[in-house]
């Protein structure tokens, strides 16, 4: 699941995942919230973690980073 589109903006699915991480949540909780298959949530969160948009803690819970928040809610 690509999280960043061709012109550098978040993809729709990335927006949905990031918006589901406030408060931080485990992938299965996110999957239930966004109604995406669990495998897509896991792969998407991992990709966004690699891009610095998400942090995954030791328990597997995921939180949006400052960078992720800035892309999700860009200053107008």
């Amino acid at each position: 699941m690509a999280c960043i589109g061709a012109s550098g903006e978040l993809t729709d699915s990335a927006r949905r995942l990031l918006a589901a991480l406030d408060p931080p949540a485990a992938p299965d909780q996110v999957a239930a919230h966004v109604e995406l298959p669990l495998y897509r949530v896991r792969s998407g969160l991992r990709e966004m973690a690699e891009a610095g948009l998400v942090e995954i803690n030791d328990t597997g819970a995921c939180a949006i980073t400052a960078l992720g928040r800035s892309l999700l809610h860009p200053a107008t």
Binding site: R40, R42, S43
Partner: peptide, 13 residues
């Protein structure tokens, strides 16, 4: 076609 996936992404299903 849905991005990069690993076998372990399917754990639990």
């Amino acid at each position: 076609t849905h991005g990069k996936v690993r076998l372990e992404d399917f754990q639990g299903t």
